[in-house]
């Protein structure tokens, strides 16, 4: 095993542990995450496999294929996080508005 493989493995395993510790996700999400982690570990241990798959898809090198997947993946993640933030913002807005209205300082006009 080369040094880089060792470092990458350490990185991926610590991310897996962090994920398990901090993300209380549903089973479906956990399965997807686990699959991704396993794929990552395989790709680290047997880098030649990525090249085989890359060739099948018409890409020269495995590393290039990974870059393509990574870049489209990050765009996807970015949009997902963006819409989530927007939803959170809307919920906060509703909450803050509700508090503002029920705690309003009413002024009663003398008729």
């Amino acid at each position: 095993m080369t040094i880089i493989q060792l470092l990458l493995l350490l990185g991926i395993i610590s991310s897996l542990l962090l994920y398990l510790k901090f993300f209380r996700s549903v089973l479906k999400d956990r399965l997807i995450a686990f699959t991704l982690f396993i794929v990552a570990i395989i790709a680290i241990l047997f880098p030649d496999i990525t090249t085989v798959i890359a060739n099948l898809l018409g890409v020269g090198r495995g590393a290039d294929l990974l870059i393509y997947i990574l870049s489209t993946g990050s765009v996807f993640a970015f949009i997902l996080i963006g819409t989530r933030l927007l939803n959170i913002e809307r919920n906060i807005t509703e909450l803050v508005r509700h508090i503002a209205i029920i705690n309003a300082e009413k002024f009663h006009k003398a008729e």
Partner: peptide
């Protein structure tokens, strides 16, 4: 200052922006 005036006052507990403040005031 708003509370010293003869007006109704709603207060956002966190800053949301002018659009949100308008909507709050309109609803109120």
């Amino acid at each position: 200052i708003a509370r010293e005036l003869p007006v109704h006052v709603c207060r956002h507990t966190v800053n949301l922006g002018q659009g949100a403040a308008l909507q709050t005031g309109i609803q109120y």
